[in-house]
Amino acid sequence: MGTRCKILIIEPSVIIREGIAAILQQMKDGVELSFADTLEEALKFGQSELFKIVIINPVTLNNSKKNLNNLLTLYNKTNVVGLISNHYDRNLSDNFADNIFVTDRHETITQIISKHFNTTPAATNDIDNTLSEREIDVLKLLASGKSNKEIAEELFISIHTVISHRKNISNKIGVKSTAALVIYAVANGLIDVDSFTE
């Protein structure tokens, strides 16, 4: 290529940002770094082809599948690498070309980045979108108008778990609102129309 590899780092923490920058700048292939604190700021760089690699902390996606999809669409010619410093929904990080963990060793990080210097992203990987049995249980109760708390009590699980199931259900089906989830449940015979109330 000859030119330096252009990398955009989207990371709100200045410590992590500067840290990863220091590691990348020591690489023998020259890199040219740009930075953004937030996704919005990153979008100001405009055209996606500008960057060979985008390194992003998923926290900047606000746990939103929509933001993730927007990002992956915008950077569809760019290798998007996750920068993982916390616990996130795997659905977010699994969709990146690779992930750097904040606990990774120096060599691991530079290896991951070097790998993406000359590659272009593979076609979007298909995720398995079938609901698990537990998720179907949660969806049925949700569609019958039960609150998170009631669902938790009925299934003997914590509210936190209910919320996490809900998030996964939404991600798999691809709809966010409860009303749309109800429609999905009705259409798939998971609940009777008579069994839910207004």
Partner: peptide, 16 residues
């Protein structure tokens, strides 16, 4: 726009 996305998704993918 979220609900708009939901309707599109339902009509294209989920409702026979």
């Amino acid at each position: 726009q979220e609900k708009l996305d939901d309707v599109k998704k339902l009509l294209i993918e989920h409702l026979p």
